[in-house]
């Protein structure tokens, strides 16, 4: 039996609409559940006071600071490393077995489950290098974890910069490094920024790799060698150990809102950069 093509067309349209709607519906449902369950417990006091009695009472201030410190420091370490690697791969070498190996390594690194990063960080940074459960060990572990994302996105962004712009730059007697820093990187900035934003998202939401390396101390970390707790870890522990589901949902809400906030800022910065260069 042959289906009438016009009917098939309509059918497909309905099906595709449904699929798109389903995706959005899931997102809305998740946010709605978190809002409904968490909103009654989120207020300024919750955000600005420290947890009391394992988080059963009080707020989440120290975990917000822990999250911010971990994410910002990781990005600061990972971005120069990742963008540098991408520049090396695209501008300073020719395609060879060597670059293929690097690329294969990067891709494999991206596919490793985060708990393995945690385990590696625990064995190497925490124990071998005697850092203990500390912010520093967490930063290095998260750095390794987000590096592949930053390298891949930066590489794609740099590759997308037209070759003739480089040639013009050379013809104006620029050196390679001047060409990279003054033409290639500014033109690739939006793409590189996207990679950084994706990485921030991953770092903010990470639990497994963080528990193993940064620990889960509820005190406010005041040095790089101290343990601390991120919001995601706090949420996990509150829920997993049944300490307080109310506080757990409230934490989750703050977490979701801060990710939303980061994305909005990222879009803002990206638009600024894009409008400056196009």
């Amino acid at each position: 039996m042959r289906i009438n093509p016009r009917f098939a067309d309509k059918l497909v349209k309905i099906a595709l609409n449904g699929q798109a709607f389903f995706t959005v519906w899931i997102l809305v449902a998740i946010v709605a559940v978190i809002c409904v369950k968490g909103l009654p417990y989120v207020n300024l006091e919750f955000i600005f006071s420290s947890p009391v009695d394992m988080g059963r009472h009080g707020g989440i201030f120290s975990t917000i600071i822990g999250t911010v410190l971990l994410v910002i420091l990781s990005i600061f370490v990972a971005t120069p490393l990742g963008v540098g690697t991408a520049i090396f791969l695209t501008e300073y070498t020719k395609e060879s077995v060597f670059t293929k190996i690097i690329r294969f390594g990067v891709e494999s690194l991206a596919g490793i489950p985060s708990i393995l990063y945690g385990l590696f960080g625990f064995i190497f940074f925490v124990i071998k290098l005697r850092m203990g459960w500390s912010l520093l060990a967490g930063v290095f572990t998260i750095t390794i974890m987000i590096l592949p994302t930053i390298i891949r996105t930066s590489e794609e962004a740099i590759k997308a910069v037209p070759r003739n712009l480089r040639i013009v730059s050379y013809s104006l007697s620029a050196t390679k490094w001047e060409t990279v820093t003054k033409v290639v990187l500014p033109s690739a900035a939006p793409g590189i920024l996207t990679g950084i934003m994706l990485s921030i998202g991953r770092a903010v939401g990470e639990t497994a790799a963080v528990i193993f390396t940064m620990g889960s101390s509820l005190r406010l970390p005041t040095s790089l060698m101290e343990s601390g707790r991120t919001m995601a870890v706090h949420f996990y522990i509150l829920a997993r150990e049944g300490i307080s589901m109310q506080k757990a949902y409230a934490t989750a809400l703050v977490l979701v809102l801060s990710i939303l906030f980061i994305n909005i800022i990222a879009y803002y910065i990206m638009n600024r950069v894009v409008s400056k260069y196009s």
Binding site: N164, I167, V168, S169, S171, V183, S187, Y277, S278
Partner: peptide, 10 residues
């Protein structure tokens, strides 16, 4: 060059 190739800047 053959094709006008300003940088994507101001």
């Amino acid at each position: 060059f053959q094709r006008p190739n300003p940088f994507p800047f101001s």
